[in-house]
Deep mutational scan, measured.
Amino acid sequence: RPRTRITDDQLKILRAYFDINNSPSEEQIQEMAEKSGLSQKVIKHWFRNTLFKERQ
């Protein structure tokens, strides 16, 4: 599977949600997927990776 490139606009959407809640529900993930055009799997990975980076 090729690597997914996240655009600046998509990143703004993900960051806005992350700043509010770094552990989103399935409904929130689905909402982000619809708004951003990214798959739910990509969003879950982004949140997991970003949370890991923030904790270091």
Rank of each mutant, 00 (worst) to 15 (best):
I29T: 04
E31R: 12
A33Q: 15
I29Q: 07
T50Y: 03
E54K: 06
A16F: 07
I20D: 04
E31P: 03
R55A: 11
K12Q: 11
E54D: 08
Q28K: 14
D8L: 07
R3T: 14
L51H: 09
A16Q: 13
R55K: 15
R55D: 06
A16H: 14
I43H: 00
K12F: 05
E34H: 03
Q56N: 09
I13T: 13
E54H: 04
G37E: 09
R1A: 03
F18E: 03
W46A: 03
P24H: 02
T50E: 14
F18S: 07
F18L: 14
K53Q: 09
I20L: 10
S39D: 01
K12R: 11
T4A: 04
E54Q: 05
K35F: 02
D9R: 07
R48I: 06
M32E: 00
F18T: 12
M32H: 01
Y17V: 05
S25F: 02
E31L: 09
S25P: 04
Q28R: 13
D19I: 10
L14D: 00
Q40V: 08
H45I: 08
Q10P: 00
L51Q: 15
N49A: 11
R15D: 06
E54V: 10
I29E: 11
E31I: 09
E26F: 14
F47I: 02
N49L: 06
A33G: 14
Q10C: 04
E34V: 11
D19P: 07
P24L: 04
Q10G: 01
P24S: 01
T7A: 13
W46D: 03
I43M: 01
I6C: 03
I6Y: 10
Q28F: 02
R3E: 14
G37H: 07
D19Y: 12
W46K: 01
R48T: 14
I6Q: 02
V42K: 09
F52V: 14
V42R: 14
L38E: 01
D19M: 11
T4D: 14
M32P: 00
Y17K: 08
I13M: 10
R3C: 03
Q56A: 01
T50D: 14
G37W: 01
T4G: 04
R55G: 11
E27I: 04
K35P: 00
K53A: 13
D8N: 04
R15Q: 13
Q28D: 07
I29R: 05
I6L: 12
R5K: 15
L38V: 08
D8E: 15
L14V: 04
A16E: 15
K53W: 07
N22M: 14
E31Q: 12
R3Y: 13
W46R: 01
Q10I: 02
F18D: 04
R3D: 13
S39M: 15
W46M: 03
S39Y: 07
M32V: 04
I6F: 12
F18G: 06
K35Q: 06
F47A: 03
S36T: 08
F52M: 07
Q10A: 02
G37L: 12
Y17M: 14
I13K: 10
T4I: 10
Q10Y: 02
I13E: 06
H45A: 11
Q28N: 03
D8I: 13
E34C: 02
K12M: 09
D19Q: 13
L14S: 00
I6R: 01
E54S: 10
T50G: 09
D9G: 07
W46F: 04
F52L: 12
V42W: 08
R1W: 00
K44H: 10
E54I: 02
T4L: 12
W46H: 05
Y17H: 10
R48Q: 14
F47C: 07
E31W: 04
N21M: 15
E26K: 13
T4C: 00
D8M: 14
A33M: 07
S23F: 12
R55S: 12
A33K: 07
F47P: 00
L14I: 02
T7S: 07
R55C: 13
R48K: 11
P24R: 01
